[in-house]
Amino acid sequence: MLDFLVFAVTMIAIWSVVALSLDLQFGLCGLVNFGQILPFALGAYGPAISAAHGGSISAGLALGLAMAAVGGVLVLAPVGRLSQDYWALVSLGASEIFRLLMVNVTPIAGGQDGTAVARVSNPLAALGLALGLLLAMLLLARRIDRSPLGRLMRVLREDDLLVATLGRNPFRVQALVTVVAWLMAALAGALYAHVVGFVAPSSFSVAETFIVWTALILGGAGSLLGAVVGTAFVQFISVSTRFLAAWSGLPFDLVANLRLGIFGVVLVLVFLLRREGLVPERKVRVDAVGP
């Protein structure tokens, strides 16, 4: 039981970082990233590619981070010329292109079957790393959130022409947020790879992106704690349904589908009943203005 709890909290911490990453992009800056699983996948595939070709762990980590930073800017590039619904489709497309490449081009990292990666053998160490990562990322996000940069991002969220009129380059702000957020998600991905010990494309599908979205909307977009709370809830639902499956004897597939369905229903219900989520965005007071 304790082992299981340790693992569950480790996963909550890791996925919370991914939700936090999305929160920076969407909650603070208004970027609708329907391919949020991509930076996570890039972070996981760095180690995978490195392992598949005899590279070291640090090489894998570096590769994952580099791919995420570059990938983020590439995917963001057309955002200035597109309204958010089109750009959302581009981001979705990008995450799917990557997944399909990983599935079909086997020499990269094992294709559909995936690759094994060095595993953190001590679950408590994994937990420690995950919690440490979450804490560090929360502090970073909080620093940005309560700063003039965070304020500017919130203006950008509402009106990018206003930002340009005020003498700032909207794309540069979006690029900065994207790189920071994607690096964040990539770190989570790399940790995930080393905790699970295995990387395969099936873990990085469109469904995963929308589980993160459900976590963020449920928790409250724009509030940092919301990302963590939402992820905890989503993981709880996930785990509960697994227990339900084991207890009721229902087939595994059915339960997996039902879980996805529950997430969908939760997502819709949040919009209908409590749009701001469980932890609403606080009226931001920047440092110097007072506590």
Partner: peptide
């Protein structure tokens, strides 16, 4: 759009 994904997931599983 995001809400429509929620609907989509619900239908998919249904």
């Amino acid at each position: 759009m995001i809400a429509s994904w929620g609907v989509a997931l619900a239908f998919r599983s249904g």
